[in-house]
Amino acid sequence: MIKLQNINKSYHMGSNSLHVLKGIDLTVEKGEMVSIMGSSGSGKSTLLNIIGLLDSHDAGEYLLDGKVIREMSETKAAMLRNKMLGFVFQSFNLISFKNAMENVALPLYYQGVSRRKRNIIAMEYLERVGLTAWSNHLPNELSGGQKQRLAIARALIGQPKIILADEPTGALDSATSSEVMDLFGEINQSGITIMIVTHENDIAHRTQRIIKLNDGLIHTDQKNGVPRPPEKPALN
């Protein structure tokens, strides 16, 4: 699904240049649930952004679903993101003036699906994350866990092949974190590849594979075996 070969990335700030990724080789198969760990500054978020087509790489080869990703126009990248990828962010990144249903429906809006049709689909996804009753609420009327579930529903609605999550539990307490991870587990069961950037060990241990980055290189890449079952039943 994702194939990275010798990916390099540096940032230039004035005369200073910061070499963030120094040659990443990584293959992620379809249906895997992978977590990326590493200390801050290790390049884990940058890696996720490059995989997510939000940022470009300087050197190396990136194949997404068999397609070579290289210097594409922003329009093409936007369309690929819309069709292939779903994003979940630490700070939720919901649109404040749109209600829950409209937020979920947003990717379909950019696909040109009619308002009526996309709202029906959005309601289905809200039901899936247990937020049907909140469909008319604005994001700032929801709790952190609800917001993140809303963001996950939004990431799923475009039926992406990969979900990319950047510290999805970073702003949540452990109980809601666990709920969110349960949700990711369910999604993964349905065959969607998931990559999670985290620095929390217990979050990482609920994925099948843990990749540790250190100073722009892959330090360890260990299979975690069968993901640990949830410690307590989901609260939903």
Binding site: A78, R81, L94
Partner: peptide
Amino acid sequence: TREIGIMRALGATPSK
């Protein structure tokens, strides 16, 4: 800016 960034991550093309 941030809102526009989110929209673009979700697939809003520059022309949109």
